[in-house]
Design a protein around this nucleic acid. Structure first.
Length: 798
DNA sequence: CAGTGAGCGAGCTTCCGCTTGACTT
């Protein structure tokens, strides 16, 4: 029997370490925290030094009892959780929960999963650092107090089931603020001048550094250039270089995977987790850019053998972020000689990204020669400028080029990195073409999931393990939606000088289209405004940074944690109470104006079922006329909707005519505009304005739909007309009332009898539709039931 | 793939961080 029990946080880590330590050691994992505050309100005794009540959650009971048993049998228990605030607390919780005794317990830490690092750790055990544990308790208690006092205020003053917290509320605030910046942004137009000189292979672009605000100025400029002589006024060549980026942390991996692979942050983390569990990469939840000495050596070896000595350059990176806790290494391949791996394409692509970034981080810089040519215009004082860049040595660019957030502005992007033909000072240039194009200044970019993570990290808010869950939470609560939005057409003017004539044209472009961007919902904005009004301190962008500073002092033993929490809590709790007593219910109500015909007041606000428009005052008694209501459509918001748009909402649903003795109604549903007729639903095609649908068109659409349905039909039954065999997009299926049943491959849809269909349908719902997940989970692991079930409920609501 | 928007009241919701799991339409 093993004399030693060593406990780490992650099972994958445990497996590796067990291999290093031999028979005297059993290595187990705690699977993260094993205890948490109890759920109820008395988890923290406010009047008694914020004493906490902890419990082992159901899904951790099994692990804890196993660890308890092993701890009893072992002579020495080694607590090897991570070396940060949370890790120290995990060790302490283990110490308490497993009933360990100090003489038989050792606390050890290591930053690198290698045999020498672990042996060294074992030789240098220490005791649990209670200052660090106190800092974690302060963090935990503060988050609970904030979350569980603030959320109920929202239930009362805004809507039930809402939530607020130190992290999520700031995340929402960032998005609300940004949306408002975008909405109030006034775009300014200016004319940008680009000239093309030379012909064929020797053609190159030059730009006028400043833009013209007025069209006349731009036109005058082109006019002046008609007769002008262009010659090279100066040529300047200087070397330039570029250095690789640091290896990935959780946040930079999420950003880069989003930009280069289009992954959501949740997906990136799922795939990374699989790579980690397969032993391909180091731990994926980290804020450190540090590489271990063994990794540095391995990278060096790999670079030198694959690319040659001159491509290697030893680099040590420092984490900029002050709140980083650096319990792990940066994310890197475990073996640098694996350029690629076996696995799903997701895994392969992410691994490749990680490998390239880590390898590149140890490579030499890329060297360029940059040339700036200034071009004199005989008729004007301004110069045109041409930029050229020639790569002299690729260095790290051989493997990896980091992308950036800025959307490609095709107007400035070409012209750069271009190669200039050989030029000499004084050389006269032949103008091929010159254009002055109207360009518009752009509003700040809306956040993507990944750019929000970046911002949160900059503000020191949240941790690598919580970025992805936070992004999910604010979406699940309905504060934020990730959406695509169509842009609108905009015209812009282009003037082209060619030969001796200037041609003026008007072109159109699409602008403002967004993909996978985060937008605040009305409820998100209302909750945010409420919090900003009544709890400014909590949703302040620097709140976390401020408390983190105090946690650090607690960790260093310079401050008493209960005093710190007391100083925070008393005024905070007072704010909660006065808000509960005095604040009005928040509905985001905004007056739109008066109805053009009736003269009644029109307003928008959020109600029980979402945002809506109201026409007419609230009645004070029964005799008064009731107001009219209409819900806003997706994409509209109470903040930006106009009176005209609000009036449109009342035009639908409307009956457009009759067909086969039944009315046809046009309305807008969850999936867009539709015509309902005799309990059938037909989508109105995109190009048709639902307001203009005529009776004839509606009939036509119904008949087209019927024809299409008939083509899909393989078989119908006399026994029950709601049962049909159909040909769907993914093959034949049975429509059994409201249930769709897939037909197995070994069955021929043509020969299916009614009874066969019934049998297949009977087999389906029990198994697939309802409880498959729940049942299987229950059967396999009764303890793990709770968390997934909860998650599912949230998804369902949506 | 509706139309809703009054008010009562019971019982519920909610935080952040550390882990992985077994699932999906």
């Amino acid at each position: 029997m093993a004399k030693n029990l060593l406990i780490v946080e992650s099972p994958a880590k445990a497996k590796t370490i067990e291999g290093y330590l031999g028979k005297d050691f059993t290595v187990k994992s705690s699977y993260g925290h094993i205890r948490d505050l109890i759920k109820s309100e008395d988890a923290i005794d406010i009047n008694n030094n914020f004493n906490q009540k902890y419990e082992v959650p159901v899904d951790k009971k099994q692990i804890v009892s196993e660890l308890k048993k092993l701890a009893k049998e072992a002579d020495i228990v080694w607590l090897a959780s991570d070396e940060d605030r949370e890790g120290e607390a995990i060790s302490w919780h283990l110490f308490e929960t497993l009933g360990l005794k100090e003489p038989d317990t050792r606390r050890i830490v290591f930053h690198e999963i290698t045999k020498p690092a672990i042996m060294k750790a074992i030789e240098n055990p220490r005791k649990i650092d209670y200052n660090l544990v106190n800092a974690q308790q302060a963090r935990r208690v503060l988050d609970r107090l904030v979350g569980f006092e603030l959320s109920p205020v929202l239930w009362k003053k805004v809507k039930p089931s809402l939530s607020a917290g130190r992290v999520q509320s700031v995340a929402v605030r960032l998005i609300v603020d940004r949306e408002r910046e975008v909405n109030k942004f006034l775009s300014e137009a200016a004319f940008k001048v680009v000239a093309i000189f030379g012909t064929g292979r020797n053609a190159f672009k030059a730009e006028l550094p400043n833009r013209f605000e007025k069209q006349e100025e731009a036109e005058k400029f082109l006019q002046d250039c008609v007769q002008a002589i262009f010659d090279i006024k100066s040529l300047e060549t200087r070397p330039a270089k570029r250095s690789p980026a640091a290896p990935f942390t959780t946040s930079t991996l999420q950003q880069e995977a989003s930009r280069k692979l289009g992954y959501s942050v949740a997906r990136t983390m799922q795939v990374a987790q699989r790579l980690y569990e397969s032993g391909y990469i180091t731990y994926m939840r980290t804020d450190s850019v540090n590489l271990s000495d063994t990794a540095l050596d391995a990278a060096q070896k790999e670079i030198k053998s694959a690319y040659g000595d001159k491509y290697h350059q030893l680099r040590k990176y420092k984490t900029k972020n002050a709140s980083a806790q650096e319990a792990h290494e940066a994310i890197r391949p475990t073996y640098f000689n694996n350029h690629t791996i076996d696995g799903e394409s997701n895994e392969k692509r992410l691994y490749e990204l990680i490998w390239k970034r880590a390898i590149a981080s140890q490579m030499s810089e890329a060297q360029f020669e940059k040339t700036v040519a200034k071009i004199n215009i005989s008729t004007r004082n301004e110069d045109l400028v041409a930029n050229g860049e020639v790569m002299k040595f690729d260095g790290f660019l051989k493997v990896y080029l980091e992308s950036n957030d800025e959307e490609e502005d095709n107007q400035t992007a070409d012209g750069e990195n271009a190669i200039l033909p050989p030029l000499t000072k004084g050389q006269v240039l032949q103008l091929q073409e010159m254009t002055a194009t109207e360009r518009f200044s752009r509003p700040p970019a809306r956040y993507t999931e990944a750019s929000l993570v970046k911002k949160l990290e900059e503000l020191g808010i949240g941790r690598p393990s919580t970025y992805a869950p936070t992004i999910s939470t604010i979406q699940n609560r309905g504060y934020v939606v990730k959406e695509e939005r169509e842009g609108r057409q905009r015209t812009f003017k282009v003037m082209t000088l060619k030969g001796e004539s200037i041609v003026k044209e008007e072109k159109t472009e699409n602008t403002g289209a967004e993909k996978n961007k985060l937008f605040p919902t009305d409820i998100g904005a209302v909750v945010n405004d409420f919090l900003v009004l009544h709890f400014k301190g909590i949703v302040d962008f620097n709140f976390t940074a401020g408390v983190e500073k105090q946690f650090d002092e607690i960790a260093q033993g310079l401050q008493d944690w209960t005093k710190m929490i007391r100083t925070f809590y008393d005024p905070f709790h007072k704010d909660v109470q006065t808000t509960l007593e005095t604040a009005d219910k928040a509905t985001g109500e905004r007056e739109l104006g008066v109805h053009p015909e009736s003269g009644k007041k029109m307003s928008v606000r959020i109600g029980r079922y979402g945002p809506f428009v109201q026409v007419g005052e609230n009645p004070s008694d029964e005799s008064e006329e009731k107001p009219a209501y209409a819900s806003l459509r997706t994409g509209q918001s109470i903040e930006t909707i106009t009176l005209e748009q609000a009036l449109e909402l009342f035009k639908l649903p409307k009956v457009v005519g009759e067909f086969e003795g039944k009315p046809m109604k046009v309305a807008i549903g969850r999936f867009g505009p539709y015509i309902s007729h005799n309990s059938a639903f037909i989508s109105v095609p995109k190009e048709v304005d639902p307001l203009d649908v005529t009776e004839a068109e509606a009939i036509e659409l119904i008949q087209v739909k019927r024809k299409k349905d008939a083509e899909k039909l393989i078989k119908a039954f006399d026994e029950d007309e709601t049962v049909k065999v159909l040909n769907g997009r993914w093959g034949p299926y049975i429509e059994f009332g409201k249930l769709n049943v897939k037909i197995p491959k070994d069955k021929d849809p043509l020969t299916l009898t009614f009874d066969d269909c019934k049998a297949l349908a009977d087999a389906m719902p029990k198994d697939a539709k309802k409880g498959r997940f729940g049942k299987a989970a229950t059967a396999a692991k009764p303890a793990a039931k709770k968390a997934p079930a909860k998650k599912k409920a949230v998804v369902k609501k949506k």
